[in-house]
């Protein structure tokens, strides 16, 4: 077996599948709200948790949810980072400029947190507990990135 192996074949194939995703009824209402720059959460009658993203069913209590509650577009940073590795922008397909700030944000009126971009990229300027406000795009289409990012309030 001292023989040098012949150059091995490799092939490149591009995955080309278009998926048509259905939103839940709850998410459809939430996304419609975004078109009016309105954020709403679903509250569980069992545990009282106000869920973002809104969903049909509280997995903790095994109960369907029906009660909508208003949520502010301001909140508090619960976790943060500054990312230096590329991620693709889902609107353009191009890599996002580096670095970018990222946080888990608890919006006023919700109990879960939402992940979103920050306008701040200096770790010295970021901390858990900092207040942030949504910066909406001029054109809103009913998608999560209708909020372009969150502004850190000082």
């Amino acid at each position: 077996m001292n023989q040098q192996p012949a150059a091995q074949l490799a092939t490149q194939i591009t995955l080309d599948i278009t998926w048509h995703y259905s939103a839940t009824e709850a998410m459809s209402r939430f996304l419609a709200g975004l078109r009016e720059r309105r954020i709403e959460a679903l509250r569980c009658d069992g545990c009282g948790r106000r869920y973002l993203p809104p969903r049909p069913f509280c997995g903790r209590c095994c109960l369907r949810m029906h009660n909508w509650v208003p949520v502010a577009d301001m909140g508090t940073i619960e976790a943060w980072t500054v990312v230096h590795v590329p991620v693709l922008d889902s609107r353009t397909g191009a890599p996002r400029p580096l670095p970018y700030g990222m946080a888990l944000i608890r919006l006023d009126g919700a109990d879960t947190t939402l992940n979103h971009y920050l306008d701040e990229t200096d770790p010295a300027e970021l901390c858990i507990g900092a207040r942030v406000r949504a910066v909406w795009r001029d054109e809103v289409v009913g998608a999560m990135d209708d909020i372009s990012h969150f502004e850190v309030l000082r």
């Binding site: 259905s22 839940t24 069913f57």
Partner: peptide
Amino acid sequence: VDTRSIPEMVLAAAEAALADAQTDFG
């Protein structure tokens, strides 16, 4: 074509099975 989401389809089937078994998620 079911216009609902996968979680909604699955929840409907799971709830129906539990009801048929006269039991619940617990």
